[in-house]
Design a protein around this nucleic acid. Structure first.
Lengths: 212, 212, 212, 212
DNA sequence: CATGAATGAGCATTCATTCAT
DNA sequence: TATGAATGAATGCTCATTCAT
């Protein structure tokens, strides 16, 4: 009976996992509900016992993971680390997600952009919250004197997110030959991005710039 | 006769412009070919005199603009400016594209990711070329002593592209309330990103970093 | 449950029967899939659960009946009858098919010729096999002394098939006024054709011909 | 000017010739009007200066040749030859048509059956007339004592037409391997069919048949 | 007469969703 | 709950035909 319940509870999760796999491989629109069903070893109709419609699956994928990510981000934000360490932890978090679950990352970064309606209505608030938490960390760093104060924390957050996403995107699309998309290279790239980004963000970095 | 030719040349362009508008508003998959036709004031069938199929329209949008962008990038790269000025010109170029044609930007950054097959097969090489040109500028800056030498130019290029794209994305998705998506804000954000990025990239920036 | 299975089995058959009716009435190309669906009292999409596409329906009509026909022909061929009786049974078989299912006959003889690609690739082998079985019966008759030996059995088979098809065609097209396309007339025509054909085929018939 | 008129007069003929070629290769429905135009080196619109619509082209092909055929048939019918010679001339005529213009033959025998509406409304009368002329020759042979009198001339005509068509069809479809569709084989088959058919038709042939 | 770009009605096919079992 | 056969609305694309030049 515990078995049965576990199986039942699993079913929603199994569908979700299958969806991540198939969405990542074929894209949201090109994915047929029946393909998800097959990948989850479930009947087509069963999907609709757990999700209202196809888009709701994508929403759930995003929702589940994004909430987990936000929770982690909040924990980082409120931890006792230095601001710079926090930023580095955030980078590791966002890219670590990739390394562990490349399919999920592709779904979140690529597929999510497919339904602009959905993106704007549902994902945007969560995404905004993610950026705000990043911005909070930056702002705190400005207050404690770690980071330069002449930059809008929100712009910094967007740059951070965008830079990481850009690295992730090129990595996911397949590395530029002759490189290969190995976790090693991703970590190398991440560490260089970190060096670039933090050097620009540190207090004192603004002094070198006289122009513009 | 000049009229006639102009009209003919216009028709393809009119369809392209209409497609950019509709793709931006509704997304690639949600856009019906008949909608593009209506927006371009042509018959449905006329579309197929100029484009092989719906996807080919998206390809053309990307292709036309990307090639123009690459040409500009090459001119910047081979100009007599300093390396730092070149990087700034690149930023202006990529974001300026947005300011002028917000719909186009949304199509290129958002819709293009919808057909992963297409993205990987067609867009990736052009995109890669774009990144390579950026990397060349960075590498030149490293050689002439303007930029720190401990960073892989390609990683820097991806960070630059990603950061700009992130800023563009959040801008295109609608600014974070109560801000509004004004060109002014975009330019402000761009200037701050520039300050952040160049400060991290300048020769000497690596000295502040002792860790990792 | 027996009910359910019967219904399921029926559905494919129902579509096939409906297709025969509509193809016969309007021709293959002029027939819309939705018309077949309506005639079979199924939804349009249901058709595609049983057939890959419109042409596959035509193939199935041909295939199902042709295989049945070939089986009957083989039984006739290997029976204990005299060669002449066998030929007469073949004639009855081919024309009897018509009498019972005029629509089917029209589909097989007329519509099948519409997709030359299909005809050549799919139907030709089955058709050839049909002719070969006929030729075998003729050849056997030549060996047992019933039929004249100076004719190529294959040519005889083609003549037999063609003659029957010609009679069927004119019958199916509507009899020549003021006659009407009655089974009676078909049977009369068949019996006369039989008399004509067998008289020409019998051993000894070649003696009367001195010319050419 | 004579040149010009010749060219102009040619244009209709050129379209017709092109249509025969393309119809024979791809079938009536699968042939695009633009393909005929291209094959005739004419603009698409030009076709409609000479023919009301696509079907009218097929009608014209049929009409032109059929009328010529009927004229020849009438000449044979009213000639001074013996009845048996007349039948042989008819066979040669129908099959000779094939040998000389295989494309045309395929159009007439195969494609014409595609539009059953058309076939019934337009071609049937001409076809009937063709059969009637054949039947007249047979009837005349019965009266002059050449042919057996127990067969309906119309049925004989249909058998004759059908047999020839069957031979033509199998020949056009490609001979049964390893034979090849050579004119030689067609003539051989024709001569055998002639021997078979005339032996069955000759006065006296009915005597051998006691049954039915 | 000739052209061929433009038209738009028409149709096969797909696939998310439902529902009887 | 689970199934998967059935549904039918939705749409990309074709191509015969027209007509301004």
């Amino acid at each position: 009976m515990a078995e049965a319940r576990a199986t039942e509870g699993d079913k929603r999760e199994r569908i979700l996992q299958a969806a991540i796999r198939v969405f990542a491989k074929k894209g949201f629109y090109a994915t047929k509900v029946s393909e998800i069903a097959k990948a989850a070893s479930v009947a087509d109709g069963t999907i609709y016992l757990y999700f209202q419609n196809k888009e709701a699956i994508l929403v759930s994928v995003f929702d589940d993971r994004m909430k987990a990510l936000l929770a982690l981000l909040e924990r980082i934000s409120s931890s006792q680390r230095t601001s710079e360490e926090k930023v580095q932890r955030i980078m590791e978090l966002q890219l670590g997600l990739l390394e562990e679950e490349r399919d999920l990352a592709e779904v979140v970064t690529v597929n999510l952009r497919q339904s602009s309606t959905f993106l704007k209505q549902y994902a945007a608030p969560l995404f905004r919250r993610y950026l705000e938490l990043m911005a909070d960390v930056v702002a705190a760093g400005q207050r404690d004197g770690s980071f330069r104060k002449d930059l809008n924390p929100r712009v910094v957050a967007r740059s951070l997110f965008g830079g990481l996403d850009g690295i992730a995107l090129t990595w996911a699309l397949g590395a530029e030959p002759p490189e290969e998309p190995s976790p090693v290279l991703l970590r190398k790239a991440a560490s260089q991005f970190s060096a670039l980004f933090l050097a620009g963000l540190r207090a004192g970095a603004e002094l070198g710039a006289e122009a513009k």
